[in-house]
Write a protein that binds this DNA or RNA. Structure first.
Lengths: 207, 207
DNA sequence: TAGATTGTTAATCGATTAACAATC
DNA sequence: TAGATTGTTAATCGATTAACAATC
């Protein structure tokens, strides 16, 4: 990582990107931070500050070119990379992710599936064969996998993470509700669904 | 909401709760903020500060009683409420959530499913019948639904949110990648999976 | 020119970290 | 008592918001 940019800023970039796409669909070619902010419930100052972190993308008195800014954000986010995913743990959630259409539109594709349940090894999901975890290293090489998605139970997640690291994974997207230890150079994003649901429960409990 | 407590603090409480559960399973009855911090990669000071927001739960020189603190956190988070969920949009993700076991262990249960696809209305997922969205109000009353889970495409999400609010939903868990407008009194948690994946792409792009 | 809007610097706000008295 | 550990106050850090000069 070149420079330290706040997590909050990084997490807002996909929202800007998404909105610019919609604006492009609406044939709107110029947008102000004011309008972007209105669509996203984010202050215009915040948006300008976030964008200014990466360069000068707008024109004073005018606004931002929708197509141009969209492409620049795609570049910053690395969405032109056509990342290849492997999903480890083809239960309900893993299976759903294997079929998830939104990924494709962001440039991600699922190229491999792994599971240790002998009953499903060899079967296919969305046209992709499920392999035993022991095949990971071999398949990672042939399929050029970039990202490992962990959708196994928490108790097995660390072992899977170790296998992924050993197979040369470049990044990990973890859905198991547990802390993982992986080398610092490998980006890891935790997607713990129980946090959001518990937070919702908390807010519903406050009268 | 009685008092303003930071989102960051609320989001860490489920982690503490989860870890206390594991400690209880390990028959460990007393834990220090130091040990909790080690297991979660959170500083002990942060943990003490978070807990102190809600009261004095520990004993100086000793630590925290595992069972006691676990129960107190469950109460704060409202996890004793046995919340009842309705999932709107039974595609791959909605279907996966309908089968998600981790919910049950936190006290949530899925009691109703809705979809507008005539091909699947009337069929069952995990023993729960799929209804047309038009039935929402009636079914919310009879099934005493608390939480609405939105797993429809972004373009339909606002309409679904409106239906949920009209049916008297108490909280919304939104998986559609779009900003929703709902009355301020109704807690809304957004679970936008494309943010995490895009952030991962960003970090993998920085060399 | 007048009005609009960016990019950037300064001010404010809030969250994390450090320090330490209290006490088991 | 000495060692451990909490709860809380003070210091620091970082993120958001406000203000405004530059300029289209």
């Amino acid at each position: 990582m070149k420079k330290m940019i706040s997590q909050a800023t990084i997490d807002r970039l996909p929202l800007y990107f998404r909105t610019l796409r919609l604006l492009e669909d609406e044939k709107i070619s110029i947008v102000s931070s004011e309008e972007l902010g209105r669509r996203l419930d984010i202050t215009p100052e915040q948006i300008r500050k976030d964008l200014a972190t990466f360069g000068q993308f707008g024109r004073k008195g005018i606004g931002y070119d929708v197509h141009d800014l969209k492409e620049k954000l795609a570049n910053i986010l690395g969405l032109h990379n056509r990342w290849r995913l492997a999903i480890v743990g083809v239960g309900h959630l893993g299976g759903a992710l294997a079929n998830y259409v939104n990924f494709a539109s962001l440039g991600f594709s699922v190229v491999a599936l792994f599971d240790n349940n002998p009953k499903i090894i060899g079967t296919q999901v969305n046209g992709i064969k499920i392999n035993a975890a022991s095949q990971m290293k071999r398949i990672f090489a042939s399929k050029e996998v970039d990202i490992g998605v962990i959708t196994v139970p928490a108790s097995e997640a660390q072992a899977v993470a170790d296998l992924l690291v050993d197979a040369g994974v470049k990044g990990i997207w973890n859905f198991a509700p547990t802390k993982l230890n992986v080398p610092l150079i490998i980006p890891l994003i935790n997607e713990d669904l129980s946090i959001g649901l518990s937070a919702l429960s908390y807010y519903m409990t406050q009268e």
